[in-house]
Each structure stands twice: as C-alpha cells, then as structure tokens.
Amino acid sequence: MSPTAYSFPVPVQKVLSRLPSYPGSILFVAGLNLALARHLSPDTLRLLDGKKLRIRAKDAGVGFDFVWRDGSFSAARHADETDLAISASVHDFLLLVQRKEDPDTLFFSRRLVMEGDTELGLLVKNTLDSIDLSVFSPTNFLPGRLFRRKAG
C-alpha cells in the first residue's frame, strides 16, 4: 500500500494545525489513563517516570505532549524539548494500533519517525507490542449497559 494512500485533506490539516495542542493533549492523556495506564508494568512505569513524550499525526497537523508522573499520564504544556517524539500519519497510527502493520516496517520505510532517546523508543515500542489489543475494547472501560446483546 502506498504511504500516501490515505491522508487528511490539506484544508483540514491547515485548520487542525492552528488549534492549540494543550486541550487535545488533555483529551489524549485521559484516553491513555483510561485504556492503557493500568496495563503497564511497574518496571515500565518506573522507566517512563518524568519522560516527556510527543505523539504527532503529521498529516492531521496535530500533536499531543504528555508525561508519566505521580501515577498517571499528564498533559504537558509547551513541551519545547521532548525525550521522545513519534510521528506518523493518522492512517499509519491506525494500522499500528490494529496490528495490521509492523512498526519496524513503517520505521524503515520512513513512515514512522522516532526522534530522541532510542532506548525510550524501544521501551515504548516493545511495551505496546506486548499489550493484548482487547484492553482497548470499549467494553473494558465504558458502562456495560451500553453494550448489551439483544436477545433473540
């Protein structure tokens, strides 16, 4: 598949890139804390402690800055310098989350870019690779009554 097969239209990217990143980072870390934080090992959390991270969706023109501190992910304001920045298109991030594409393949084809602390990048990659995707199922963190099966 071509790396440019799916991308945000330029007018949408221009609008999104003008939005302040901090409110988006707050929403992003809320999702991380709800769906991911409890599944991370204490060793991983110790290594993440105080590290400034950035996830950037290049084609959407948005980025989220955050840090693990005091037992949860927190949005970071004005993170000029990060320990690790990970960039890809929204489509490539979706492929990664769905495990339809390997991070190494995206990295070597330059569709996934990691900048900063190499060891931290490997920790993040290996940690995400080791997590069972079912932890991201909405039934794990939303009220069960929203997902009842219909009888019959």
Results as ranks from 00 to 15, higher is better:
residue 1 M to D: 11
residue 1 M to F: 12
residue 2 S to R: 12
residue 2 S to T: 15
residue 3 P to C: 02
residue 3 P to A: 12
residue 4 T to Y: 12
residue 6 Y to I: 15
residue 6 Y to K: 14
residue 6 Y to R: 14
residue 7 S to Q: 15
residue 8 F to T: 13
residue 9 P to Q: 15
residue 10 V to P: 14
residue 10 V to I: 15
residue 13 Q to D: 02
residue 13 Q to N: 14
residue 14 K to C: 10
residue 14 K to R: 15
residue 18 R to W: 13
residue 18 R to N: 12
residue 18 R to S: 15
residue 21 S to F: 00
residue 21 S to H: 07
residue 23 P to E: 05
residue 23 P to A: 04
residue 27 L to F: 10
residue 28 F to N: 05
residue 29 V to W: 01
residue 31 G to W: 08
residue 32 L to S: 07
residue 32 L to Q: 02
residue 33 N to D: 09
residue 35 A to G: 11
residue 36 L to E: 05
residue 37 A to F: 08
residue 37 A to T: 05
residue 38 R to S: 14
residue 38 R to M: 11
residue 39 H to S: 13
residue 39 H to M: 06
residue 39 H to T: 07
residue 40 L to K: 01
residue 40 L to G: 00
residue 42 P to S: 12
residue 43 D to A: 13
residue 44 T to E: 04
residue 47 L to M: 13
residue 47 L to G: 07
residue 47 L to K: 11
residue 48 L to D: 05
residue 48 L to K: 00
residue 51 K to N: 03
residue 53 L to A: 06
residue 54 R to S: 05
residue 57 A to P: 10
residue 57 A to K: 12
residue 57 A to T: 10
residue 57 A to R: 09
residue 57 A to S: 15
residue 58 K to P: 11
residue 60 A to W: 10
residue 61 G to M: 00
residue 61 G to W: 02
residue 62 V to F: 02
residue 62 V to E: 01
residue 63 G to I: 04
residue 64 F to C: 00
residue 64 F to L: 07
residue 65 D to Q: 01
residue 67 V to Q: 09
residue 68 W to D: 00
residue 69 R to I: 09
residue 71 G to I: 10
residue 72 S to G: 14
residue 73 F to P: 07
residue 74 S to M: 15
residue 75 A to V: 03
residue 76 A to T: 11
residue 77 R to Y: 09
residue 77 R to C: 01
residue 79 A to W: 00
residue 80 D to I: 10
residue 80 D to S: 10
residue 81 E to L: 14
residue 82 T to N: 11
residue 83 D to P: 02
residue 83 D to K: 00
residue 84 L to V: 05
residue 84 L to H: 06
residue 85 A to S: 15
residue 85 A to G: 09
residue 87 S to R: 09
residue 87 S to K: 06
residue 88 A to H: 01
residue 90 V to D: 08
residue 92 D to A: 12
residue 92 D to Q: 09
residue 92 D to K: 07
residue 92 D to R: 03
residue 93 F to I: 03
residue 93 F to S: 05
residue 93 F to N: 04
residue 94 L to T: 12
residue 94 L to D: 13
residue 96 L to H: 09
residue 96 L to D: 02
residue 98 Q to V: 07
residue 99 R to T: 06
residue 99 R to A: 03
residue 100 K to P: 05
residue 100 K to M: 12
residue 101 E to T: 02
residue 101 E to K: 12
residue 103 P to G: 04
residue 103 P to Y: 06
residue 106 L to Y: 02
residue 108 F to W: 06
residue 110 R to M: 05
residue 110 R to V: 08
residue 114 M to F: 02
residue 115 E to Q: 13
residue 116 G to A: 00
residue 116 G to N: 01
residue 117 D to N: 11
residue 118 T to S: 09
residue 120 L to P: 02
residue 120 L to R: 07
residue 121 G to C: 00
residue 123 L to Y: 04
residue 123 L to H: 04
residue 124 V to Q: 00
residue 127 T to D: 03
residue 128 L to E: 00
residue 130 S to A: 15
residue 130 S to D: 08
residue 131 I to Y: 04
residue 133 L to W: 09
residue 135 V to Y: 03
residue 135 V to E: 02
residue 135 V to K: 06
residue 136 F to H: 03
residue 137 S to A: 15
residue 140 N to F: 06
residue 141 F to H: 10
residue 144 G to S: 14
residue 145 R to F: 14
residue 145 R to E: 13
residue 146 L to Q: 06
residue 147 F to V: 07
residue 147 F to I: 02
residue 150 K to S: 14
residue 151 A to K: 13
residue 151 A to S: 12
